[in-house]
């Protein structure tokens, strides 16, 4: 891998499962030392993409290079240079913490002189000091995830693929996990991490928004926020939320309306209804509503707009 070469490069990467296209001509370029977040709803094709990049699935079309090796033609060379954490926890539950580390250390041929030190590092990173002899299936979610990360980086891979590493893990453990990811990135490890938690997207250097197998946007969180919203974003409390979305659909001036937690997020464009008119407009339709506040768009707002924009376009003749 030469100095300027990208850590990961994908060109027209496509995966079809019979009639279903899981990944649709995806282009991707990841620089060394970057943390790139794959964001998208379930079934968007994030896992399938990661599996192709790890050489676990054969691409139906297109090519990809990881650490300079072709994922379809040199999968073993790719595997020497990557660490992978699959979506489902997949260490051996019937082995102890130490036995799992020993196994992966052996499989990755970690030099014997480094092994003890790396094992200590992995154990302390996972916060499992003193529990080296516990069967892994007895550990709670957060510890399991950190141990899986520890096993995936035992051989010091330059590139890490983490597929929804924090799903099903409590928020405190998720925070700790992201701290670890940043520590690794500081050591020039390239990290591709997928998540469906929008708040985690903010922790990434760059984001790739994926929907229905296509890359629909990519950039730093700031860039995405700045360029993607076609109007101004307002937040408004109202009940019932579902009816409120229905009322706004098709109303002139409304670019986008979506439920955001227990509130409604409305993007208003030029002309048409204004923010001050909204509560009254809702009242006319029998919906209770408070005043509308202007808010800074979150990545989730951007994402919702991008995804719904695509779907509307698709339904037009």
């Amino acid at each position: 891998m030469s100095a300027g070469a990208p850590a990961v490069l994908a060109q027209g990467l496509t995966k079809r499962f019979k009639a279903f296209t899981a990944v649709d001509h995806l282009d991707l370029r990841i620089k060394k030392g970057e943390i790139i977040g794959f964001i998208g709803p379930n079934g968007a094709g994030k896992s399938t993409t990661i599996r192709m990049l790890c050489g676990l699935l054969h691409p139906s079309e297109g090519r990809a290079w990881v650490a300079g090796f072709d994922v379809d033609r040199q999968p073993e060379a790719v595997r020497e240079h990557i660490g992978y954490m699959s979506q489902k926890f997949s260490l051996y539950g019937d082995l102890t913490v130490r036995e799992n580390l020993l196994f992966f250390g052996g499989i990755y041929r970690v030099p014997r002189r480094d092994f003890n030190e790396r094992m200590r590092f992995a154990v302390s990173m996972a916060g499992l000091e003193g529990r080296e002899n516990a069967l892994v299936r007895t550990l709670a979610g957060g510890w399991k995830q950190r141990l899986a990360l520890g096993c995936a980086i035992l051989h010091r891979p330059p590139i890490l693929f983490l597929d929804e590493p924090t799903s099903g893990v409590e928020p405190e453990a998720r925070r700790r996990f992201w701290d670890l990811i940043h520590e690794l990135a500081a050591e020039q490890v390239t990290i591709l991490v997928s998540t469906h938690y929008m708040d985690e997207a903010e922790y990434c250097n760059r984001i790739a928004l994926i929907d229905r197998g296509k890359l629909i946007a990519s950039g730093t969180p700031g860039e995405l926020r700045a360029r993607r919203l076609r109007g101004e974003l307002f937040e408004i409390s109202c009940t019932p939320l579902g009816a409120a979305v229905k009322v706004l659909t098709g109303t002139p001036g409304v670019v986008e309306a979506a439920i955001f937690g227990d509130k409604l997020h409305v993007v208003l464009g030029e002309g048409g209804i204004s923010a001050t008119d909204l509560p009254g407009y809702f009242g006319e339709h029998g919906i209770q509503a408070g005043p509308a506040h202007r808010v800074t768009p979150s990545l989730e707002d951007i994402f919702v707009q991008l995804v719904s924009g695509r779907r509307e376009r698709r339904t037009l003749p």
Partner: peptide
């Protein structure tokens, strides 16, 4: 555990 195993060399 297979997915993890086959992601190794």
């Amino acid at each position: 555990t297979m997915e993890q195993l086959i992601s190794t060399p």
